[in-house]
């Protein structure tokens, strides 16, 4: 399943500056593994060493938090849109 993945600014160094990339997978876990193949280092920013989503990262599937779906096991449809969003906003002290 080919999906669109929206990349936040701090991770665009790993995607050669792209704010949106394509990835393949039947579920979100597969998509993250596919992203790692094409953009090494990306998965470890998003996931803990045991594969779970880091606490300060939210993944939205078509604007819905995957924690309210089946988390990383959430299945995907063609042209779904996955957004990687830091759970908090950086920058002001």
């Amino acid at each position: 399943m080919a999906v669109k993945v929206r990349i936040p600014t701090p991770l665009r160094k790993l995607t050669n500056g792209a704010d949106e990339v394509k990835a393949d997978g039947a579920n979100i876990k597969d998509v993250l593994n596919d992203l790692e193949k094409n953009f090494p280092g990306l998965k470890e920013r998003i996931c803990e060493p045991d594969g779970a989503l880091r606490r300060f990262v939210n993944l939205y599937l078509n604007d819905e938090d995957i924690r309210f779906k089946d988390n990383l096991a959430t299945t995907l449809k063609e042209n779904d849109e996955l957004s990687i969003i830091p759970a908090i906003a950086g920058g002001v002290f």
Binding site: P8, P10, R45, V57, A89, G90, G91, V92
Partner: peptide, 18 residues
């Protein structure tokens, strides 16, 4: 400062990437 550009510390800036 955060040790990484992609971090979970609300309000903090990673200067090298900001």
């Amino acid at each position: 400062e955060p040790d990484n550009a992609f971090h979970g510390l609300e309000g903090l800036k990673h200067m090298a990437s900001s």
